[in-house]
Amino acid sequence: MKTKEEEIIDVLEKIRPYIQRDGGDLEFVEFKEGIVYVRMLGACSDCLALDDTIKMGVEALLLEEVSGVTEVRIVENQL
């Protein structure tokens, strides 16, 4: 039986090639109280379509495929 985090990472791995194709990437940070926290990397970090990518892409897929997920939030890159 997979943990919730493993289920989330599996779904994110399905999405990553599409994001990488446009010069970006994402990484799983944590899952806490129904919220998945991800960090956007590369071209995604300052992309104008980032909100759409997260809400209509990443969040929609996670809500559909992983029970217990209620939202996806972006964690800012730390310098």
Rank of each mutant, 00 (worst) to 15 (best):
V58P: 07
E5H: 13
G23T: 03
M56L: 15
E7T: 07
D10E: 15
A60E: 11
E65M: 14
I15P: 01
D25C: 08
C44H: 02
D46V: 05
G24E: 05
V69M: 07
E71A: 14
T70F: 05
E6W: 01
R39A: 09
T3N: 09
K2Q: 14
G23L: 01
L26V: 10
T53L: 01
I74T: 10
V38S: 00
G23W: 00
D51I: 11
L26F: 03
I19S: 02
G68Q: 11
I8F: 02
F31P: 03
L79R: 07
I8V: 15
Q78C: 10
L41F: 06
A49N: 12
Q78W: 04
K55H: 15
C44D: 06
E30P: 05
E59M: 09
R73W: 04
V36E: 02
I19R: 00
G34N: 10
E30W: 03
I74Q: 14
E59D: 10
I19W: 01
V75D: 04
G68R: 10
Y18C: 09
D46P: 04
D52I: 15
N77Y: 07
A43K: 00
R16P: 03
K32C: 12
E76F: 06
E64A: 10
E30Y: 10
D22Q: 04
V69E: 05
E30T: 13
K32I: 08
L61T: 12
I35L: 12
M1G: 15
E64N: 14
E13K: 14
Y37V: 03
Y18N: 07
F31V: 09
A60M: 09
T70H: 04
E6H: 02
L50C: 09
E6R: 12
R16I: 07
G68D: 11
I74P: 06
E65N: 09
E71I: 00
I19G: 00
E65S: 11
V58E: 00
R16Q: 11
E33G: 05
C44L: 00
K55L: 08
D10N: 15
R16T: 10
A60N: 13
I54W: 02
V75W: 05
D46R: 06
G24H: 05
E27T: 15
K55M: 09
D10C: 04
K55E: 13
R39C: 06
L26Q: 03
E6S: 11
T53D: 01
E71K: 15
K2L: 15
D46E: 06
I9G: 08
G57M: 07
V11D: 03
R16E: 11
E76A: 13
